[in-house]
Amino acid sequence: MSIQEIQEEIVDEFSIFEDWMQRYEYMIELGKSLPLINGKYKTDDNIIKGCQSKVWVHAELEGDKLVFTADSDAIITKGIIAILIRVFSNQKPQDIIEANTDFIDEIGLKEHLSPTRANGLVSMVKQLKMYAIAYQTQLN
């Protein structure tokens, strides 16, 4: 599936939730259930420091696609990471570079990706794109 298709799928899934409680409960479930990153990559080098919650990201090229794994010490942050990983992982670097994150607004989680929110997620999206740029250069 393309990034766009996955985003549409997620927007669809979220449309059944009636209020923030249900959205948060879903994200918390995502955060709890997913083993996101191999422990050996949870190193200080891979930390994207937000002000409050720590976020780790690891990137690896598999064929012509970039695979991301990530984690956070805060569960809601981890839930959002799970969503971001679902969108961006296993995609071609060029597609990642060109993708937007507007769907986050549509699923009612905009406040978590505000540039002034101190949770590391904005930096994480930036970092995903940086990896994509780096690997794209390598592929070229």
Partner: peptide
């Protein structure tokens, strides 16, 4: 529980 999660809720 991470304090950030409590604060968000």
């Amino acid at each position: 529980i991470h304090p950030y999660d409590i604060g968000s809720i």
